[in-house]
Simulated scan of single mutants.
Amino acid sequence: MSQKFGDYDYSDLEPLPLDSPETDDIILCRIMYSEEYKTLMSYMRALMAKNELSERALYMTELVIGKVAAHYTVWEYRYKIVKELAGEGAADNAAENAADNAPDGLQDSQGPGVSPSTILQRELSWCGRIALENEKNYQIWHYRQLIIGLMIDLLYGGDSSSYDIEKEEYPIISKMIKDDEKNYHVWSHRRWLVETFKLHSSKEELRFTEELLIQDVRNNSAWNHRFFVIFGGKTMNRDLDEEIEFVKLQIEKSPTNPSSWNYLRGIYKKMGLNIGELKGFVDKFIGKEKEKEDNLSVQAFELLGEIYEIENEKRKAGEVYELLGKKLDVIRVNYWEQRRLLAESN
């Protein structure tokens, strides 16, 4: 009986069904798979059992991933297939070059297979389409990173600088972050790009985060990425004073935003600076008149308390934490009481 999917024939395979008579009596919770999915997976399992690394196996993984994009076993199998096909393409290209330089009559009559460049570029484009359809899927991004690694090894001789990030990565990342600016998987991929391609303190990364913060100064993901870009490398190419002034400006735009305050505190901790230097800046957001405002900055008062602690002003620090717990941030009254006790006892 002929069994075809797309342009490929699978009639030679003995399907391995998901359901087995041997396990019928021990299944605790039977998953209600669709008949289509069970059919696809039965042929998928047959291909995997043979460890077949072919075009038709690649197509079958596409069909299964189209049904269940989070099937990590199928993603792993697909990578093995692509790696094999791309490797064969590289070998074919080498053979073709050798044949071209051989004496007349010795050239192989067989033409070369699909080039590694075509295989991997096609795979990267397909992966992008799947990512856009499955925004919360993390397997896609790990797979994409594996394909990028293959491209660097097979196409560029290990030279990562030859991979065009601006063309291949930035457009899809920008589109997905525009749709969901808190997409953890996309941000993780961007961080991977920074690490892999040594983009710490790159102007493009700084521009990218700055544009997002202009749109939404409370974008904690953008703040986190910016901190990693500037301070996550072995050296820092960004002027520290300029960065501190940049953060202060964002705080003044939104004094109640914890993200920018945490970023400022992070700079001082990372660089070993004395937060006491921020006392004059903090004074802009505190005072009796500020306590009456609905948008008072709890973060400013907290930082003031910490400044008093390092200045050994235990009583003043305790008073700030007491104010926070009893009036300014009463939902965390127990937390502030603990901070007060610690400050006054140290």
Rank of each mutant, 00 (worst) to 15 (best):
I173C: 11
Y156H: 15
Q107E: 09
K83W: 03
N134P: 03
N137A: 08
K83D: 14
D159E: 12
I81M: 04
N137V: 04
Y37D: 00
D100A: 11
N97R: 09
N137K: 04
T73F: 09
A57H: 06
R45E: 09
I165P: 15
E36S: 13
G105W: 04
N93F: 06
V114D: 01
E135M: 12
Y138F: 15
S54F: 05
G111P: 00
D164G: 02
A99C: 14
E123I: 05
S125C: 02
L154K: 10
L150Q: 14
D100W: 03
P116T: 05
W141R: 12
R56C: 14
E135F: 03
R45K: 13
A98V: 06
S125G: 01
A70Y: 07
S117K: 14
C127M: 04
E55P: 07
N97Q: 08
L132H: 09
I130L: 14
E123H: 07
A69K: 01
R45W: 07
I130E: 11
G113H: 04
A90K: 15
I173Y: 05
D100N: 12
N93G: 15
H71N: 09
R78M: 00
L47T: 03
I148Q: 06
A99I: 00
L155M: 12
A102M: 13
E168N: 15
Q139V: 03
Y170L: 15
A95Y: 04
V68P: 02
H71E: 07
E169L: 05
E166S: 12
G111K: 13
A70C: 04
T61M: 12
M44E: 00
G87D: 09
I147D: 06
I65T: 11
R129N: 10
L106Q: 10
S42I: 08
Q107H: 08
D104P: 15
E135S: 11
A46N: 06
I81A: 07
M41F: 06
I140G: 14
L124F: 15
L154E: 08
G89H: 00
I130H: 07
L40T: 12
G158V: 07
A86F: 11
D164F: 02
E135L: 13
Q107A: 13
R122W: 00
P112M: 08
Y77A: 12
L150F: 02
